[in-house]
Computed example of a mutant assay.
Amino acid sequence: MQLFLGADPETISATYRSVAGRGLEDNAVVVAGYADQKIGVIEAGFASPNPFTIELFGTDAGLTYTDDGNVLTIAGRQLPVPEHGKDPFAQWVDHINDGTRADDNLSRAVELTRLVVAANEAAGEGRAVPYPATKS
């Protein structure tokens, strides 16, 4: 599975900070470096009262989503967002009852775990690390 930008990144670097003073990281920036010189930036923070927001920007257009009003904007145009589906617990129960698996979701979870492992290694060592993470 490709992380983003159409290919797996070559490197991951990360900076974690604690701005709320609670003894844990509550603000992080992760940078994915690609062979074709593209970069992907992932910012995650839990120290701000801002609403949940996703922003994706490229050379041709951008996409933003916020749960403050459930608004999706692509290339400056607002698009309707369908109502939220079943929550994860209800989906899990359905899979148990139906004898099915959420294979796509499972593969995304594995890829997210690989990214977090690489980001943790990069932040801990203060350097970019190969992706997927390998201990050197």
Rank of each mutant, 00 (worst) to 15 (best):
A90L: 10
A75L: 02
F46L: 09
A14R: 13
N105D: 08
D98F: 00
V19K: 13
G33N: 04
T64L: 07
G6P: 00
A32D: 05
T113F: 04
M1K: 12
L63D: 00
T134G: 08
G40P: 02
T53S: 14
A35Y: 07
R22Q: 05
F57H: 13
F46N: 13
V129T: 09
G23E: 00
E10W: 02
L3H: 03
T59P: 15
N27R: 14
N70C: 02
N97P: 00
E10T: 14
E25G: 11
H95E: 06
A7L: 07
L5F: 04
E121K: 14
N105F: 02
G126N: 11
R77L: 06
Y65E: 05
L112Y: 05
L63M: 13
V29T: 14
L3V: 13
V19Y: 06
L115W: 01
A20C: 11
R114E: 12
I39W: 01
Q91D: 03
V81N: 04
A119H: 08
V117G: 04
G126Q: 11
V116Q: 07
D68A: 15
T15I: 15
S107W: 04
G76P: 00
Y65G: 06
G124S: 11
S18P: 11
R108I: 05
E121R: 15
A32E: 07
T113D: 12
E83A: 14
R101Y: 07
R17W: 01
H84A: 13
D67G: 10
R77H: 09
I42W: 11
A28L: 03
A133F: 08
A35T: 12
V81Y: 02
D103G: 03
P49M: 06
V31S: 09
A109W: 04
